[in-house]
Simulated scan of single mutants.
Amino acid sequence: MNIRDTLKSVLDADDELLVVKLSGTGAWSGFSEKGSSWLKNNL
């Protein structure tokens, strides 16, 4: 997603970012595998 990609350039290695479209579509960066799995299963 454009918002995620734009904001990724200013994130530090320990930052997390979640961008969610209310339809259930989302994109994220910086989450652990456990966090990413949870998001995939719950969005």
Rank of each mutant, 00 (worst) to 15 (best):
L17S: 02
D12Q: 10
L43E: 09
M1R: 08
R4C: 03
R4D: 00
V19A: 07
V19W: 13
I3P: 03
R4L: 10
S37N: 14
V10G: 08
K8N: 06
N42V: 02
V10N: 09
A13C: 07
L17I: 02
L43N: 08
V10D: 10
D14F: 00
V20S: 07
V19I: 15
A27I: 12
S32I: 11
K21M: 12
A13E: 15
I3K: 06
V19Y: 13
F31D: 00
L18C: 01
W28V: 03
K8D: 06
G30P: 05
A27C: 12
S37H: 13
N2I: 14
V20D: 06
K34R: 05
A27Q: 13
G35R: 15
S29T: 11
D5H: 12
S36H: 12
R4N: 03
D5W: 07
G24C: 03
V19S: 13
G35I: 13
D5P: 08
R4H: 01
T25S: 09
L39G: 02
W38T: 11
R4V: 04
I3N: 04
S29M: 08
N2W: 13
D14T: 04
D14R: 00
T25H: 05
F31H: 10
G24I: 02
E33I: 12
E33P: 11
F31P: 01
E16A: 09
L11P: 00
